[in-house]
């Protein structure tokens, strides 16, 4: 399958554009956030209409930020599609492509959350900047240090399992990113009573966001591990070989199982569970960066 350099360069252009748009959306979100009257003040406003007046402007800014995020996500999707068209396969076989797709899932997942929680969107949407922050950082790293030009697949990766297994891994990771952000904010909000954290949604909302996203992601992650094992059986002659990448994926899975357990264990519900969730995402990131780059295993030929 020949590579189309023209399409690939359009894909790169769209990637850069999406990154810039995310940055702008993040900037708008910070304007919104800064302009927010801390929650207690709103609560104090007995008269609803006054509260509406005070609330109106930052909320509109926030809505524009969300709209801009949506636009950026469309451009981002375009970048992925063009990359796929340029190489004639799903575009996730190296870290650049992988990170781009994860960020896209995180943003798309975030927009879905906002849509499904329309009723609470006003309080949720101000988290937008915090969700976009890791996305922007990851995409910046992906577009610079980790950038890889469009290439065909090496034979070991050339299988329809790459579509299934890696898509699942990407989807789960993207959703878990949103979950991780919610738990980090939960911990930050619960620890410091500063002016900044006072504008966060209440901790029950954050906790619910973290839980609902994790609960969607965990079966997908389980599916990713199982399909990975099926693929490994076909490609490497064993379904499980304690390769560092496999091991780390399992460790992350066990940590997330611990998260769900913690939520059912007395004394571990709030902060304890949130810490475990954050640890889980830490292991996911570790698996993505450290294991790919530093530890050589079978998976290392996925290419940095």
């Amino acid at each position: 399958m020949p590579i189309s350099p023209v399409l690939a360069s359009y894909s790169d252009l769209a990637y850069g554009t999406a990154l810039v748009l995310y940055l702008l959306a993040m900037a708008l979100h910070s304007v919104e956030y800064a302009a927010r009257v801390p929650v207690p003040a709103i609560a104090a406003g007995a008269d609803g209409s006054v509260a509406m007046l005070v609330r109106g402007r930052p909320e509109r800014t926030g809505r524009s930020a969300v709209a801009l995020t949506g636009l950026a996500a469309l451009v981002h999707a375009g970048s992925l599609a063009l990359r796929g068209a340029a190489i004639g396969r799903v575009p996730w076989a190296n870290m650049y492509e992988f990170i781009s797709a994860i960020c896209f899932v995180a943003v798309a997942g975030w927009l879905v959350v906002l849509y499904r929680q329309r009723a609470a969107a006003a309080s949720l949407q101000r988290l937008g900047g915090f969700v976009l922050l890791p996305v922007v950082v990851l995409m910046f790293l992906g577009g610079t240090v980790l950038y890889a030009r469009a290439q065909p697949l090496i034979p070991a990766l050339n299988s329809y399992w790459i579509t299934i297994h890696v898509s699942a891994a990407i989807t789960a990771t993207g959703i878990l990113l949103v979950s991780g952000v919610a738990s980090v904010l939960y911990l930050v909000g619960a620890s410091a009573g500063s002016r900044i954290t006072a504008r966060l949604p209440d901790s029950a909302t954050l906790d619910r966001l973290a839980y609902r996203t994790a609960v969607i992601a965990l079966p997908i992650w389980t599916f990713a591990i199982i399909t990975g094992a099926i693929w490994a059986e076909a490609a490497w002659g064993r379904y499980w070989g304690w390769d560092p990448k496999e091991t780390c994926a399992l460790v992350a899975w066990v940590v997330y199982a611990g998260y769900l357990h913690a939520r059912a264990t007395a004394g571990w519900r709030g902060r304890g569970a949130a810490w475990i969730n954050v640890t889980g995402f830490g292991v996911m990131l570790f698996n993505l960066f450290f294991v790919n780059i530093v530890i050589a295993g079978f998976h290392s030929y996925a290419g940095v």
Partner: peptide, 20 residues
Amino acid sequence: MRTALMLLFLLAVGALPGAL
């Protein structure tokens, strides 16, 4: 449940040197 949680945690920590 508390023991299960601790053991899950130990399992995760114990597996790490196998990757590192």
